[in-house]
């Protein structure tokens, strides 16, 4: 297993570099000019100097190599410096955003908490809702509960999140006035009042994403339970007079969880990507909104870094899912 993990990790490096290259070349073709928003009164030679200052004068392979070096060498040095008070980085050039002229990773670090709060919470809520629905739906297959659960999960992944979000805003924010429609990032949780306010503003975005995630996971859970409920070992367990609760919740559930856990792991990076839309609907200024702003402003270092982080998440969680599969299912041997 260790050898397999190491092999996969080594294989991930060329994959990631290739992905970075694809994204970089796509952005290289971009007609968008980061200078477009500057006043037209700037003379052409000054404009050219400003382009040079942004590092746009060099050929693409030098800029790509520089970005790779900054991402994999300089940035980790800064993190270590910040954590232990050392001075490895020694003032080396970091990845700088074209728009704000501050280091890309500082801006990302500012945005991560909002995204993690809303998206992370919604994923946890989604999983917590999905598992019981899947289990009960499979156990009482074709009962009214199962019919309802299947229908809701079908609706959950058919209705796009931007429509669920807008619908919830119309109902709960505009007509009933229960929840605010805009996520206020400046809110600091210090007492009970502000905690309640935080809960209220998180309620709708979390619900929208949770419904979407729960819809997908509960289908897997149900299918996997159904697969296992018909197996011979279940009949054996019942035949020896075992309590039905133990049969279902211990024998069947534990075996059914194997594929579901990998599905849950695989869903994590997609949640970050899919949250772009939900963040836009509820005006949560998280990573997704940052990406949209950066794309519109031709902020190449920001777009490149953010997209690459998403790619790293996908590759990492694919690996985690495969390893988890091997850990939980002794029949799977990778070596």
């Amino acid at each position: 297993m260790l050898a397999y993990t190491i092999r996969r990790l080594v294989l991930a490096i060329p994959t990631l570099i290739f992905i970075a290259f694809v994204i970089f070349m796509l952005l290289e073709l971009a007609p968008g000019d980061p200078m477009a928003n500057m006043p037209l009164s700037i003379p052409p030679e000054v404009r050219e100097q400003m382009r040079q200052a942004l590092g746009l004068g060099q050929p693409w392979y030098i800029r790509f190599g520089l970005w790779l070096y900054q991402f994999f060498v300089v940035e980790p040095q800064y993190w270590i410096d910040a954590a232990f008070g050392t001075n490895f980085a020694d003032g080396a050039q970091r990845i700088i955003s074209f728009q704000s002229r501050s280091p890309v990773f500082e801006i990302i670090a500012e945005r991560v908490p909002q995204t993690l709060w809303v998206v992370g919470m919604s994923y946890i809520v989604g999983v917590i809702i999905a598992l019981p629905i899947g289990i009960a739906g499979a156990y009482w297959q074709y009962s009214w509960f199962d019919q309802l659960g299947t229908f809701i999960s079908m609706v959950g992944f058919s209705v796009p999140t931007f429509f669920t979000g807008v619908l919830l805003i119309v109902i709960f924010a505009v007509n009933l006035g229960w929840f605010p429609s805009i996520y206020n990032t400046t809110l600091v949780v210090e007492d009970w009042e502000s905690f309640l306010a935080q809960l209220r503003q998180m309620a709708m975005p979390v619900f929208v994403l949770a419904l979407y995630n729960a819809a997908q996971i509960s289908r897997y859970m149900r299918a996997s339970m159904l697969d296992n409920l018909g197996q011979d070992y279940v009949r054996t367990a019942r035949a020896k007079g075992m309590n039905e609760r133990i049969v279902v919740l211990k024998h069947v559930l534990r075996n059914s969880m194997i594929p579901v856990i990998t599905v849950i792991a695989l869903g994590v990076p997609q949640v970050f990507g899919g949250a772009i839309i939900t963040e836009q609907v509820f005006k949560v200024n998280g990573l997704g909104q940052l990406l949209i702003i950066a794309i519109q402003g031709s902020d190449i270092p920001m777009v490149l870094t953010l997209t690459f982080i998403f790619a790293v998440l996908i590759v990492a969680f694919n690996l985690i899912a495969d390893i988890l599969y091997g850990v939980f299912d002794p029949r799977i041997r990778y070596d």
Binding site: L291, T307, F310, A311, I314
Partner: peptide, 23 residues
Amino acid sequence: TDLMLALPLLPLLLVMMLLFRDQ
């Protein structure tokens, strides 16, 4: 195919929309 699956598709779609729009 595996490589394509590892790409973050929605961000890339957004980038592509912006890039090739004018051409």
